[in-house]
Design a protein around this nucleic acid. Structure first.
Length: 107
DNA sequence: AACCTGACTTGGC
DNA sequence: TGCCAAGCCAGGT
């Protein structure tokens, strides 16, 4: 296909439903790049798309990954809480409850 | 054109 | 539990 890696990753990110979260690893797999979660982070870092729900992507522990500008970490948590997502005392999300691994119907 | 740097995950001690 | 190495793309200097 002629789509760039970034484009495919961003497409997968856009599919995450509101009120749910996905991980770098899951998104990588959905985009067709299993075992390359770093690519997801890199793509998001470069992304400038305004409507992209980047805040719904968290790390495998259900936590928000640190980045250069710590300000965005706060923004991300705030946005997730607005969507009804709960954080535990350690600042982590219960992936078994809020995690979204793909378009397959959730039981 | 080489070199550096970033939103990660997993397996092995 | 925790630290380490490997896997590996793009854009900026």
């Amino acid at each position: 296909m002629s789509q760039s890696i970034d484009a495919r990753i961003l497409t997968a990110v856009r599919a995450i439903p509101r009120g749910r979260v996905s991980t770098y690893g899951w998104i990588a797999t959905l985009a067709g790049f299993p075992r390359q979660p770093r690519m997801v982070g890199y793509a998001l870092r470069r992304a400038d798309e305004v409507d992209l729900p980047w805040h719904r992507v968290v790390n495998a522990q259900g936590g928000i990954s640190p980045r250069a500008n710590a300000e965005w970490v706060r923004v991300q948590r705030q946005r997730l809480e607005q969507e009804g997502i709960r954080f535990d005392a350690r600042g982590r999300i219960d992936l078994a409850r809020f995690g979204w691994k793909g378009p397959s119907p959730r039981p």
